[in-house]
């Protein structure tokens, strides 16, 4: 199951990268197709982030006693200001470690 998943995902990923370069399809995409490609990474990665920052217990969301949400918000601000991957990760991680070890909410 895992092996077949890895191989299928590998083939799909390769085809996504190869098909335009192969010359099989027309170079020009419709504007709406181009627009939707622009939105897909945002639309797929955002729910994954939300899932990683949330704590669900019996399908109930815990918003307030959750250090990850606060650290996530800090890293969003850092990402907006600095536009820097390393700064976003290190400040977000440092604030999470600090809050989870030294602050009791």
């Amino acid at each position: 199951m895992i092996w077949s998943g890895i191989i299928i995902c590998g083939v799909i990923t390769f085809l996504i990268r190869f098909i335009p370069m192969s010359g099989i399809i027309s170079k020009e995409l419709s504007p709406s197709a181009k627009n939707s490609f622009k939105y897909i990474p945002l639309a797929v990665l955002t729910p994954i982030i939300i899932n990683d920052l949330s704590i669900f217990e019996n399908n109930t969301l815990f918003l307030f006693k959750n250090y990850k949400i606060y650290a996530g918000l800090i890293s969003i601000i850092v990402a907006f200001i600095t536009n820097n991957i390393l700064a976003t990760i290190s400040i977000g991680m440092a604030s999470y470690i600090f809050m989870s070890n030294f602050i009791n909410i």
Binding site: L45, T46, I49, D52, L53, K68, I76, T88, M93
Partner: peptide
Amino acid sequence: PLTFIAII
């Protein structure tokens, strides 16, 4: 999630 935040 922090890396994904930095990407999006």
